[in-house]
């Protein structure tokens, strides 16, 4: 955090001198930091990367339009966190208004998501994807939604435009198939 504070606040000071390259680097850094965190969180909520990119753009624009409110003798990262928090809250409110009943994370959850390390989760995701690869399309979609993204049966049913019962059936079949393959794989290893 201290390293970020130093290099990022230095970049903000460079921006004041009109150093476009350093400022572009800073915006890129912020985007690189936020993008995977936003994407991952939204994926778990069953949202596409579109919304994550939308939010990211809002945040970058917020930083840009309010950059004069950062005073050089104050720490930069708390300021930045404030801008991000505000924009997340803003977008959450907007999306919730537009979507009505669709689930949108609370600010606290956002922050938990953004603060949490994601490497281990990514690794686990990759492992989980492997057994899904050979499943029929619908089955793998259902397993991904229920077991990996943690969506509810109802949400998954709506997203895939099928009935709740069909979701349960597909999930059941998929698990049986995965189990069968695992047993087969164990036998192969044994022989």
């Amino acid at each position: 955090m201290d390293d970020w504070e130093q290099s990022w606040s230095a970049a903000m000071r460079a921006e004041r001198r009109g150093d476009a390259a350093t400022y572009a680097w800073l915006l890129g850094e912020v985007a690189a930091y936020l993008r995977p965190r936003l994407c991952q969180r939204l994926a778990r909520l069953g949202q596409g990367p579109d919304l994550a990119e939308d939010i990211l753009q809002e945040v970058l624009l917020g930083i840009h339009l309010k950059r004069h409110t950062w005073e050089v003798d104050r720490p930069f990262t708390p300021w930045l966190a404030g801008i991000v928090r505000y924009k997340l809250m803003d977008v959450t409110r907007r999306v919730r208004r537009e979507a009505g009943r669709r689930y949108v994370p609370e600010v606290a959850e956002w922050f938990e998501a953004i603060a949490a390390p994601i490497e281990d989760l990514d690794a686990r995701l990759i492992d989980k994807e492997k057994p899904l690869a050979d499943l029929p399309h619908k089955e793998s979609d259902v397993v991904r939604a229920l077991a990996i993204e943690g969506a509810s049966v109802g949400t998954t049913a709506r997203r895939l435009s099928i009935s709740d019962g069909a979701v349960r059936l597909l999930f059941h079949r998929a698990l049986a198939r995965i189990r069968g393959r695992a047993v087969q794989a164990l036998k192969d290893i044994g022989s």
Partner: peptide, 9 residues
């Protein structure tokens, strides 16, 4: 980002 960077300073 490129557009914003062009407005630096």
């Amino acid at each position: 980002m490129a557009k914003l960077a062009a407005q630096s300073g």
